[in-house]
Nucleic acid binder design. Structure first.
Lengths: 110, 110
DNA sequence: AATCTTTATCGTAATATTGCAATATTAAAT
DNA sequence: ATTTAATATTGCAATATTACGATAAAGATT
């Protein structure tokens, strides 16, 4: 035990959960926010932006990349990371949808 | 080590990360979706809706409650759970905001 | 070629999460 | 008062996550 039982849930549920999980750490939120702030892909100084050791940052970047939230391409001896807009859009759409459903909710609630 | 270093990040970053983390499991996504689907707070059969043992579900519900994503009130010998719209709204607003920022992005990107 | 810079990987320790059986709790029903 | 039903808590095993020092890899600079 200890491993998530993904097989019992729908693909969509697993996808959203995976994306949410990837953003479930303040460092990774900070990375995503930084990439949006700099508004470009010419990066290479993400480590200096975070209050964590370089291997830790590298690990968080890897995780964001694995879930598809960011993209990275080699650019000389630096690596150019940037947001994957499609992944963010998935989350945006998801929460917009359930938010809409909630506003249509009857008032028979606590 | 092993514990998240929340103290180095902003309150907002920690808040969003906590909410995202709570939704970072398909079972908890399924619970939230179910609560939205039934469109009411008269609950009491969440356990039967999920492919997990009762203690496991109870644990997931506790986690959602701790992060403020759902509310629960005792109603006889059943417990009435429902969505906390404000928490969902926080996420919705957050992703809508960064999504907007992304569309305004220059095209100097990979 | 030797060195510097940047990022990744390995190894490891500390902590957290997931899942469930067993048990407890609490209120309703008999 | 006993039983039933619904949910919570405890205890524990398996696994995952977080963090970082040490080291490796690879292109840039000198």
């Amino acid at each position: 035990m200890g491993a998530t039982k993904t097989e019992h849930f729908t693909d969509k549920q697993n996808t959203i959960a995976t994306l949410a999980k990837a953003l479930g750490h303040p460092a990774r939120i900070a990375i995503v926010e930084y990439l949006i702030k700099v508004d470009t892909c010419i990066c290479g100084d993400i480590v200096n932006e975070l209050p964590l050791a370089q291997p830790t940052v590298s690990q968080h970047l890897k995780e964001l990349k694995n879930t598809g939230l960011i993209k990275g391409s080699i650019e000389g001896n630096a690596i150019c990371y940037c947001i994957n807009e499609k992944a963010i859009e998935k989350l945006q759409t998801y929460f917009a949808n359930i938010s809409t459903k909630l506003t249509k909710k009857k008032e028979n609630c606590c």
